[in-house]
Design a protein around this nucleic acid. Structure first.
Lengths: 233, 233
DNA sequence: CGGCTCCTTGATCAAGGTCAAGACATGTGG
DNA sequence: CCACATGTCTTGACCTTGATCAAGGAGCCG
């Protein structure tokens, strides 16, 4: 495989400061660099499958990833996303469980793979690092619990409005105000937990009401206040 | 307050072996005993409120607890339960966040309160203990993510069947085969994420179909296989 | 015996899922 | 560069699920 990217050097990596790795010492980061392996994934590639045993943790260097669970009828439910600086699969590694989601590249992605034992050793020897990991998983647990509340009590309309707001918060906007991520209507539906057709209908309704603008897969917020009101936060 | 219970002694506590505290040394457990405070809560008492800052972690010694989030219209969504041996609130303490749920006693409950700093110090100094905590929160995260999938994709009927199975797994049955917990129909509805009336109608349907037996608030499984089939696991 | 809370049942209706069909867009190989 | 195939988007029609409202019954406690 020809690499179209320069392999990041951990102790110097641009994403290090945004990740739990910021707690590593120079020495630890240098060692990490010796043990990791960097790899490019094309858009649509599966990074790992739900239910499979993983050999290590991935640190996202470039690109965006969706993590989803698959229901009994094969229907997908997106649980969360990952972007540069995020770690994925570390919960499975630390708790010695099989992967609880499937990770798939939303665009071309570069990941650094850290072998399980290396990662676990870091967590065991560097208290600041392990506390950062605990905080990460607690935060994510909180996110998931909020999601539960949302699914259980809100209408599809409210959920879609909230989802748009969450997407903008997580991915930010480009210089034209469009959310920095391209999702199909089906993918949006599998975040919101609804049918693709419902997403389409509601998005065009939002557009008609001048709350958002649509340009292909790109979404731009026109009226944040009203959206928040619909989301009923 | 007169205590109608004998205060448990940590290093000797019957629940210690079922909790993350099993990783404590004798010395650590003895110190823990000096720092903790034990308290009785009556059925219905609120132990802490969502959004409040907590001063420590609770270890459940006796009784059952529900943990719920409250939605925008005041509707409650039960996120999980706790029983003897479980720790509650430790995620908020470790991640230094306000409580993300409200904890309420389902029956008379005895809790031991461990001050935040004592708990954090244990987590920082005892690697086995902190790894156990990480595993706990990862496991809970997995539970929450499964819950999301369930809410997003399953019918109320399927969810109720699955909920009954989860209750039996978590609380076990008494010698007559009834699930060891008494929940109102409303509480069951706020686990399943539906209206009280729907729970009532479906429970009587399950009873009519000889899947379960009902005796007041007590539920007994008659046909596990069929329930599992309905739950569509 | 009121006054609670909880349970139950029936009637109604809207939200949203499903199905079907076609438009549009994108990429592929000839 | 075109023709075709495939994936995505859109719209309309229909119908099921389950929420809501209303009213009454059952059990429990001071």
């Amino acid at each position: 495989m020809d690499k179209k990217f320069s392999e990041p050097i951990c102790y110097n990596c641009v994403v290090k400061e945004y990740s739990a790795f910021k707690h590593l010492s120079r020495y630890e980061a240098e060692n990490l660099f010796l043990d990791k392996a960097c790899k490019l994934y094309k858009k649509g590639d599966i990074i790992y499958h739900e239910g499979h045993r993983l050999r290590g943790v991935y640190c996202v260097y470039k690109g965006k990833i969706k993590l989803y669970k698959t229901g009994s009828e094969g229907k997908k439910q997106i649980i969360r996303f990952a972007k540069p600086g995020d770690l994925i699969a570390f919960r499975s590694i630390l708790s010695d469980e099989v992967a609880c989601t499937t990770a798939q590249a939303l665009e071309d992605v570069v990941l650094c793979h850290i072998p399980a034992q290396v990662f676990i050793n870091l967590a065991k020897t560097n208290t600041n690092f392990s506390m950062a990991l605990i905080k990460l998983s607690c935060k994510e647990l909180d996110e998931s619990n909020k999601f539960i509340l949302k699914l259980a009590q809100k209408s599809v309309r409210e959920r879609l409005a909230e989802t748009i707001l969450l997407l903008i918060e997580y991915f930010n906007t480009d210089n034209q105000g469009f959310i920095n991520v391209s999702l199909t209507r089906e993918e949006i539906a599998s975040i919101v937990g609804t049918a693709t057709e419902s997403v389409i209908r509601l998005l065009s309704e939002f557009k008609k009401d001048k709350l958002i603008d649509l340009k292909g897969k790109k979404i731009k917020i026109l009226d944040m206040k009203k959206l928040e009101k619909i989301a009923n936060l």
